[in-house]
Computed example of a mutant assay.
Amino acid sequence: MVNLEKGNARRPHRRALTLGLVAVLVLALAVAGAVMPVPYVSLRPGPTMNTIGANPETDKPLIEITGAQTHPASGHLNFTTVAYTGGPKRPISLFTALRDWLNGERAVVPQETIFPKDETVEEVEEENTFLMEDSQQTSVAAALIQMGQKPTTVSAVQSVEKGLPADGVLRPGDEILAVAGTKADRTSRVTGALKQYKPGQSVELTIRRDGKEQRVSMTLAPAPDDANRAVIGVVLRDRYVFPIDVKISVGDIGGPSAGLMFSLGIYDLLTPGDLTGGKFVAGTGTITPEGQVGAIGGIQQKMLGARKAGATVFLVPAGNCDEAVTAAPDGLRLVKAETLDGAVKALQSLQSGQGAVPGCSAS
């Protein structure tokens, strides 16, 4: 015969022991989740700044133009950014990743999305700084071309490789104007001229350094990866020579995605009239000198940041339209931007109430 009373007496003890073990396990998992690093990055809306207004950190115009007449502009033409938490140096915890994954304003993405495995954090930051500087140069070129003023180009030294002929002869920032007396106004022409030389031959370059022209000579060396190819040991990139001076101050913000909004801001300041009609317009997109607008990352966080700041119109690169339509916050009108010219015309149509305004639609 089974003693039911004795069995029932043991159950509360076993139940308490089980609950205690579960509580310990839950606590252990909670502690582990709070401290366990995971290879993910959490994205959130970042700062947004008015390209035709002042930098809030310095209270000075975000875009300063000298050498040309400028015109007052009202409203906003804000560029948008994405901020992040995490990374190789300060990884987020499993708990943070799960919390942010459930947050509708954030996106949790693999760490490699921001920090490729073959690059250090410092290299990524340097690249983003370079992309921002290059974007600013390109945006000035795009704005001037939109106005019918095509800027000239020059091939500039970006870096010099140690131990090769240019080491100690050329410096970053030097502009190469000619190779052996033949004009070379862009990188492709400089490299094309140097291809005619063999290792051991000498070449004379005409350069401009600190605004002064000078001639330098060097003997070409064999390339590290091809003994038959002659090199001087520099990395070159095209630089624009503008008839005006444009200074864009954004602090330590990096990346190329503000190009479209920089171009619109410059264009608005250099042309009579008011491009926004007093509206709060924000947007994003890379820009080429010819005015082509390129897709970017983090469109959802950028739209949310813009709407929180007060934007009612958002310029979306055509390549981001599908994603933008499904994630746009209430009260934000999406305008598709394929080119700088198209964006200018769309804003003019919004202001006048006449003409087509291309919107984003899901494909």
Rank of each mutant, 00 (worst) to 15 (best):
T191M: 14
A221Q: 08
Y40W: 12
V22E: 10
T138I: 06
P72H: 11
G291H: 13
L332F: 01
R333H: 05
P317T: 07
Y267R: 14
L332Q: 07
A337P: 02
V281N: 09
Q146I: 03
A309P: 02
G285V: 02
K279V: 11
G283S: 11
V293P: 11
P151W: 01
S217H: 06
V108C: 11
L27F: 07
V234M: 12
A143F: 03
I65G: 15
E213N: 06
V203M: 13
A141F: 00
I244E: 15
K279I: 09
S263F: 13
L164R: 14
D225T: 10
V335Y: 02
T138L: 04
T219H: 11
V24T: 05
C321R: 03
T288E: 15
I52Q: 14
D59R: 14
D341M: 07
R186I: 09
I52V: 10
A282S: 11
I207G: 12
V203W: 06
M1F: 10
E112T: 15
K198M: 11
A230Y: 01
D330L: 05
G359M: 00
V246M: 14
G53P: 12
E175V: 00
S202L: 03
Y197A: 12
R99G: 01
V154N: 10
G298C: 08
I65V: 10
D274P: 09
I244M: 13
V82T: 04
L304F: 11
T113W: 15
T219A: 12
V325I: 05
T326Q: 11
G319R: 08
A23S: 08
P289W: 04
A258V: 14
I92E: 04
V124E: 14
I176L: 09
Q214T: 08
V38Y: 07
P165R: 06
V82F: 02
V190M: 14
